[in-house]
């Protein structure tokens, strides 16, 4: 398959790497300084709310990655440009890891806040199901040996999963109102203080830079795979 990428675009992806790595490290250094030292503890939750600065960005990017995955699958169906199939594949693993991070950090945050590691709350349950949607996508891709076919099939699965997300969200919300445990009240979310906004913003930026770094590396892996495949076909 022809990637339809110009050399200039490939060059940008390759040259951006050292710059991205350095800026990710710098952003994380600032982010850690602000989130662990510079920001005051919350007046209700104390220092435990510092977990928010890593939990919230990972949850955001877990959801954003699935949107990109489904969006590029739709674009692939419309344009049949293989670059969209590669984008979808590259983002899937990153999204799955961030879903896992947000589940684990959320659970660690839950212990001091709710007193238990896990609550069958609507948001947590939906995130858990999202993790399995990512897993199904990646497993399906791996288990089909004909990679051309695999990209067509997994694009269809990504879209089915995306259609299913609002249905899952709706049904889990409805289920949660039926079975809401009485002792645990939902986390109230008052407006976040400005002193918390700064570390949250920097950590979000740092996580985003990291995501782009890994995403570009995965794009390069796919581009090189493509090159190797074409050379072997010729020989």
């Amino acid at each position: 398959m022809n990637l339809r990428l110009t050399n200039k675009q490939i060059n940008i992806i390759e040259k951006a790497n050292p710059f991205l790595i350095v800026s990710t490290i710098v952003a994380f250094t600032f982010g850690l300084y602000f989130s662990l030292l510079q920001s005051p503890p919350d007046y209700i939750q104390g220092d435990s709310m510092r977990i928010m600065y890593i939990h919230v960005p990972s949850a955001w990017f877990a959801l954003m990655a699935y949107t990109i995955l489904a969006g590029s699958s739709v674009l692939w169906f419309i344009t049949r440009n293989p670059i969209f199939s590669i984008i979808a594949r590259s983002i899937a693993q990153i999204g799955m890891i961030f879903t896992l991070i947000s589940l684990v950090t959320g659970s660690i945050w839950g212990k001091p806040t709710w007193g238990v590691w896990w609550v069958w709350d609507a948001r947590l349950t939906s995130m858990l199901l999202l993790f399995f949607l990512y897993l199904a996508y990646i497993f399906l891709w791996q288990s089909i040996t004909n990679k051309d076919l695999a990209s067509k099939i997994s694009a269809a699965l990504a879209i089915v999963g995306f259609v299913n997300i609002p249905i899952i969200k709706f049904s889990v919300d409805w289920w949660n109102t039926l079975h809401q445990p009485a002792t645990i009240s939902k986390l109230s979310s008052p407006s976040i203080d400005i002193s918390m906004m700064v570390p949250l913003f920097i950590m979000t930026l740092a996580t985003f830079l990291f995501l782009v770094t890994v995403f570009f590396i995965r794009l390069r892996i796919e581009i090189l795979d493509n090159k190797i495949l074409r050379i072997r076909e010729v020989e």
Binding site: L32, L36, P41, G46, D47, S48, R50, I51, I54, H55, S58, I97, L100, I101, V104, T105, I108, W109, K111, P112
Partner: peptide, 18 residues
């Protein structure tokens, strides 16, 4: 960390190691 050390350090540790 105001008594929350195990939680905060394990969460941050998990995030960065992963």
């Amino acid at each position: 960390m105001g008594g929350y050390a195990p939680f905060i350090w394990s969460a941050y540790g998990f995030f960065f190691i992963t």
